[in-house]
């Protein structure tokens, strides 16, 4: 097995996870645990595919996917922020809704292939200059434009979170909404904005699967990736930079079974395919055992903010 080609495939497999994880980090940073990632990813995946198929326009396809994720997030935001509904159940419902929506819209596309100019737009291209770097260039800079976009998102959002006033404000909204409110920050506006951002990123993550990764439509294309992304948020301790490592690690686990298939292993392939899920559990358990101050979730997470109730 060629190590470089494997690692390059790992980056590809980790990209949808990376989009969704980083999006969810921001949603949780403002105090909203959105368990609807899987649903929003599916909505993005199927909408991106349908728009790409219908319009043969890659940019429209991507925008459609982001918009679909945002619409899902908007429903969630309205119920949990404005109407102060239960975040867990609303998120779960969003996943059920997204699954239904994807199978409804997708039922007429099963087995269809995207038009060539869409697949070409998202095919691997060498990034100027950087792709010349030995090893690193081959792994990270001979990828789809969407992969480059994911790098840009991580850097941009990381700076936003840690180096700007907005980042400070959004963290305050998640940690102590009453204090944020008192200091003149519009809690609802921040919550809406970042929950919708999370939706858009999940939608793009899903679209990466249907537009770039597997450009033939298939049912349940996400196969639990949205849920793994929720777990990755904990693994990354709400830090977008650490999400990169987590996403690629789990991307690797996702494809390792397929890669190992050609070797006759003593362990059945079905058992190897359990790896990402087993690893997710291990991560959850380990993170909960070594609880430290920095590893904690934003403290208002899961609770709606009601001004008269602080």
């Amino acid at each position: 097995m060629n190590v470089i080609s494997f690692l390059s495939a790992v980056v590809q497999a980790g990209t949808p996870l990376l989009f969704a994880t980083v999006g969810e980090i921001f949603s949780q940073k403002v105090g909203n645990l959105n368990l609807g990632l899987e649903g929003m990813m599916l909505m993005g995946a199927v909408t991106g595919f349908a728009v790409g198929y219908g319009s043969a326009n890659p940019i429209l396809a991507l925008l459609g996917a982001a918009l679909a994720g945002m619409i899902g997030a908007l429903v969630y935001a309205f119920i949990t922020i404005t109407l102060k509904g239960n975040q867990e159940v609303t998120g779960l419902t969003l996943t059920i809704f997204g699954t239904g929506y994807a199978s409804f819209v997708g039922s007429s596309y099963v087995g269809y292939k995207l038009p060539e100019n869409v697949t070409e737009a998202f095919a691997k291209v060498s990034f100027p200059v950087l792709s010349e770097i030995p090893v690193i260039g081959d792994i990270f800079f001979k990828q789809s434009v969407l992969v480059y976009f994911s790098y840009a998102c991580v850097v941009f959002l990381g700076i936003l979170l840690y180096k700007t006033k907005y980042g400070l404000n959004l963290r305050m909204v998640g940690e102590n909404p009453a204090a944020a409110d008192a200091s003149g920050i519009s809690v609802s506006r921040y919550k809406y904005f970042y929950v919708l951002l999370g939706g858009a990123m999940s939608g793009i993550g899903g679209a990466f699967l249907s537009l770039a990764y597997i450009p033939v439509w298939q049912e349940n294309i996400t196969a639990g990736k949205g849920w793994i992304a929720v777990a990755l948020v904990i693994f990354a301790v709400w830090n977008p930079y650490r999400a990169v490592a987590g996403a690629y690690f789990f991307g690797g686990l996702d494809i390792i079974g397929f890669r190992l298939q050609k070797f006759s292993l003593p362990i059945p392939i079905y058992i190897i395919n359990m790896l990402p899920y087993v690893a997710t559990i291990l991560v959850l358990v380990l993170m909960s055992i070594r609880k430290s101050k920095e590893n904690k979730a934003p403290s208002s997470i899961g609770r709606a903010y009601f001004r008269e109730e602080r």
């Binding site: 639990g224 777990a231 899920y277 997710t280 358990v285 609880k291």
Partner: peptide, 14 residues
């Protein structure tokens, strides 16, 4: 340990 049960039980589904 307070391990998140939502994700744990979900992974056990898969």
């Amino acid at each position: 340990f307070g391990t998140n049960e939502t994700l744990f039980t979900l992974m056990l589904n898969y």
